[in-house]
Simulated scan of single mutants.
Amino acid sequence: MVDPLMDETEGFGAPATVRFEVAGRSPEDAVRDLGGLYGGDHWVARPTDGAFDYRYTALGDTEVTIRRAQLRGSLHGSVPTGGDHVVAWIGAGSAEVERLGERYPLPRETPVLLPPDHEYTFWTTDHDLRLVHLDREFVRRVAATRTEAAEQPLQFDDRRQPDSETARRWQGALTALARSLRVGGPESTAWYAAKAMAAEVFLDAFPPQHDHLPAVLGHPRNSRLRAAVQYVHDHAADAVTVAELSEASGLSVRSVQESFRRVFDVSPLTYLRQVRLDRVRADLLELDAQAGTVGDVARRWGFAHLGRFSASYVERFGEYPKQTLRR
């Protein structure tokens, strides 16, 4: 096994080189090595046919790394939020993910975004994964050159499946990344161009969304409710009232309340609180722990009573806001 190496000698302000490999034949070593890379909890590895081995390699820099994860056996565990954006390409084996109570298989031979903003649990068997890790701040800087909206925290739909043309472009980006590393290394001009292109394709494959409205709102019968929900998302920091939602949607006050109950099983104001909590979490994940406080972010999104806010946050995300800030 080779210890992870991050070479910070490239010069002030330059991203550090990332280069490491871990490998072995013991399930216990796999849990230690692979779980340690992702800060995961309760990882379990087992042989599937009497044999077990694993190999994980990474090369690039702290903005983008290309990685390959191979394992003969099964692997199961949980991954916390707050790390890089990770796009996986499953070449062999099987993988499933569960997040927010939903469990689903990951498709093979297509770019898959692993859940970026929620803790998730995974199961894999005899896998061969090509992974690209993209630093969140690097992606935000690239996105800022495309739209002013990128100044806000970026959110992505990890259930989105890119079309065949975008999947082909992602394969091309992977090829360009690997070639630039092979020819010039992570300090070369070719590498810088290749990783910028990879970020561009990533943003095309998984377009950032400040708030992804639930798909159920696309049904014609929910068109007026959609207007009310959009109003909530557009004015989440304001003192929104049910009367305002009624005016925005053309529904009566009673119909607004009944529609939220019918579709989301919560009141309009509970839905507003959930959106605010999501906004707080997104801000905390982007915030430098030394540059701001939880209270400042909470108040920005309309939470005046910090004790009740903290309790609601724990109920929704399973951790205290200070824990999110320290990620």
Rank of each mutant, 00 (worst) to 15 (best):
R326Q: 13
D61N: 14
L114F: 04
P47Q: 06
R103H: 03
D49F: 05
D61W: 05
A150G: 03
E319M: 13
Q171S: 14
A173Y: 05
A248I: 13
E98H: 00
Y271R: 10
G185Y: 01
P220H: 02
T65K: 00
V280W: 02
R169W: 02
P268W: 07
M197I: 00
E21A: 14
R300T: 15
A178V: 04
E200K: 00
H305T: 07
G302E: 04
S312W: 06
G295I: 11
E244H: 03
L277V: 10
A198V: 08
A92E: 15
A311V: 09
A228I: 09
P15L: 12
E137G: 13
L114P: 03
E148I: 04
E109N: 09
A298H: 07
P80G: 10
A311Q: 14
G184A: 08
R136G: 06
D128S: 04
H305A: 09
H118D: 15
R276F: 06
R221C: 03
L5T: 09
L269Q: 14
H133N: 12
S188A: 12
R136F: 09
L5P: 00
D33F: 03
R262P: 03
L251I: 13
P47W: 06
D41N: 08
V2Q: 11
R299P: 05
R299E: 15
G50Y: 02
L106M: 11
A173K: 07
A92H: 04
A69H: 13
F260H: 06
R221F: 06
R130T: 14
Y231L: 14
F206W: 12
S249W: 04
L251C: 11
T57F: 08
R140Y: 05
P107M: 04
R25Y: 03
E63K: 05
G302W: 01
Q70A: 12
L225C: 12
Y120T: 10
T324I: 08
V112Y: 02
L154S: 02
E21I: 07
R226Q: 11
D41I: 08
V229Q: 06
P47K: 07
L106D: 00
L284H: 00
G295T: 07
E98V: 03
A58F: 01
S94F: 00
R146Q: 12
G24L: 07
R182N: 11
V97P: 01
R103T: 15
L100C: 12
E96R: 09
D265G: 02
A51P: 00
A193G: 01
K322M: 05
Y104L: 15
Q323G: 03
E8H: 05
G218L: 06
P214D: 15
E63I: 04
G11A: 12
G73L: 10
G295P: 01
V240N: 04
S255R: 15
E151V: 14
R299A: 09
L134Q: 02
R327V: 15
A95Q: 09
S246G: 14
T62L: 14
E119M: 09
V112Q: 06
L177M: 13
V314H: 06
L277Q: 06
E102C: 01
G184F: 04
D288E: 13
G24Y: 05
V314I: 09
S94W: 03
R254S: 14
R273L: 01
R221V: 15
E96L: 01
L131E: 06
R32H: 08
R308Q: 11
R108L: 09
L245Y: 07
A58R: 14
D135I: 05
R179Y: 03
R99K: 08
S249R: 08
D157G: 05
Q274A: 13
A243P: 00
D296T: 14
